[in-house]
Design a protein around this nucleic acid. Structure first.
Ligand SMILES: [Mn+2]
Ligand SMILES: [Mn+2]
Ligand SMILES: [Zn+2]
Ligand SMILES: [Zn+2]
Lengths: 156, 156
DNA sequence: TTCATGTTTGTAATCATTACAAAATAGTTT
DNA sequence: AAACTATTTTGTAATGATTACAAACATGAA
């Protein structure tokens, strides 16, 4: 686990226990977590962990290029431990975000029409393979914001 | 202005004064408005207009394919009257969203890895041409949510 | 230890969005 | 037209993610 400590130190971030735990959680599992999910998961390891710390930490990591913040799910930010450019698929039924391994040739130019490009965000919205296979599922009407707490669907 | 009325009628939407006004506002000006901006602008024409009506109307329009909802600006949805597929540039300094006229070949397939694609969302984040030219402007750190009310920067 | 600086935490405030029900409107039937 | 019904609009309250803030805590140097 000294690798994580080095990653933080290299970027001038003091490697506290909280930060190391957050970095481990975000980079190890390949999902795209929300603050809420992260908090629920990490409180088991750090009972006193506050959401404010998670907001602070993830903003710091985001600024230092350790994670990427995704505003795909309306109303709730998700964080990606994979900073290499890739796209996403957002399922409007189950709310999952799935990695799509394609990259954008336009974005690589770093500039378009005189605007400086810092980040490239691409995602597809639709119904994922699993949800297509599981019929009878009421699809969430597009644009409808459903509080994430209520959107959870177990994907066996 | 009977064109707008027809557009609504064709899709089974009763063409009320509020809806016609909203449709006119969203489709005529090429910007990507928020509910807040729309409300501020339209209250002049309809003094009793409520935000709830705007939420309802835009969700309805979005479901019927008359507008597209963009979750680019974190914390505030924006609505696009142009439904033809195109990309966007989001300036992290002034918060503007600029149309980028490229389209995604992958998205046109309508399907990827078995997932059904309903919408394609692509945008670049960075600093726009105007903000690059105007130095001394403190750039908003990425991931930092700034209430839109306070983000307004006049672009001469 | 003392001091200074950076970090974490809890709590309160903010603000976009959703829920809900009453009031207003429009269309239909008598 | 009046009565009735379904739809739309509106105001207000609730929800929930995010931000602001200051006190408590930890760390490291003097
Ligand atoms: Mn990803
Ligand atoms: Mn557009
Ligand atoms: Zn799904
Ligand atoms: Zn700009």
């Amino acid at each position: 686990m000294n690798v994580l400590k080095d990653i933080l130190s290299e970027r001038g971030i003091r490697p506290t226990f909280q930060r190391l735990t957050v970095l481990a959680a975000v980079s190890e599992n390949r999902s795209h977590v929300t603050i809420r999910e992260l908090h629920a998961a990490l409180v088991k390891k750090i009972p006193t962990l506050s959401k404010t710390t998670l907001y602070n930490t993830l903003e710091l990591f985001s600024a230092k290029g350790l994670v990427r913040s995704l505003s795909i799910d309306p109303g709730e930010a998700r964080y990606d431990g994979v900073v290499a450019p890739h796209h996403h698929f957002y399922c409007s039924v189950c709310g999952r975000i799935i990695d799509i391994e394609i990259s954008c040739p336009t974005g690589r130019a770093g500039e378009i029409h005189g605007h400086r490009i810092d980040e490239v965000h691409g995602y597809f919205k639709g119904v994922c393979r699993d949800c297509l296979a599981r019929p009878g599922q009421t699809s969430v009407p597009p644009g409808k914001h459903i509080p994430a707490q209520r959107r959870r669907i177990s994907h066996a």
